[in-house]
Design a protein around this nucleic acid. Structure first.
Length: 197
DNA sequence: GCAATGATTTACT
DNA sequence: GTAAATCATTGCC
């Protein structure tokens, strides 16, 4: 079951970030379907400094975040890694959830080829935001694509118990000052494919 | 027009 | 543990 627009368009990005754990991210690229279960996410909102659209500032890069919930926001970080976000909330409100790690499910052989690794190094396949984007074939062409379309979408997956969800501070945003401490990173307790424990 | 830098990964020492 | 890789975007001139 593909998630509907209503799931993404709710007015609570932190709640959506929690609920995305256990769901299945699927892509269809070049005739290959690849998928993975989401095991780690982070929430971003225009209200805090960690967000590209802090203060509601709209630029050429972040304009997709201002679209209604249900679109993919993909951007290049550190000059070499694509980051995948799920846009949430209503049009004009810049909020999104960064997908930081997934557990490979479908098309593992294709993912290994894209990442240039083999089965001896399975954990390295998708345990980080740049890694999973490469494994799933997500390039910056996906920026602004609908999550209700035929190239990228999210399906209902496993129910994750709240006692198995860990909340912590987000990674790599020291420049956000006090907002870097917000407990807006969520991951499945003890899961092998989480980027950092 | 130009210099600074990052929601990371990987390979070294 | 530390550092290099590498470039689009941004903000300021």
């Amino acid at each position: 079951m593909k998630l509907e627009a209503a799931f993404y368009q709710r007015n609570n990005v932190v709640k959506i970030a929690r609920e995305l754990l256990g769901k299945i991210l699927v892509t269809r690229v070049g005739g290959h379907i690849t998928s993975g279960m989401i095991v780690e996410t982070e929430a971003y909102s225009w209200k805090e400094r960690g967000c590209h659209a802090y203060g509601g500032r709209k630029t050429a890069r972040n304009s997709v975040m201002f679209m209604p919930g249900g679109y993919a926001y993909v951007y290049l970080c550190y000059g070499m890694h694509n980051m995948v976000n799920v846009v949430t909330n209503s049009e004009g409100v810049a909020e999104a959830v960064l997908i930081r790690a997934v557990e490979p499910i479908r098309g593992v052989d294709v993912m290994m080829e894209r990442r240039n690794t083999d089965a001896t190094n399975l954990r390295a396949l998708t345990s980080g935001p740049g890694k999973l984007a490469a494994a799933l074939g997500i390039s910056r062409d996906f920026n602004g694509k609908s999550l209700l379309g035929e190239e990228i979408w999210i399906e209902q997956g496993e129910k994750i118990l709240s006692r198995d969800i860990v909340a912590s501070a987000r990674i790599g945003i020291a420049y956000a000052l006090e907002d870097a401490k917000l407990p807006w990173r969520f991951y499945i307790r003890g899961h092998e494919f989480v980027s950092k424990i």
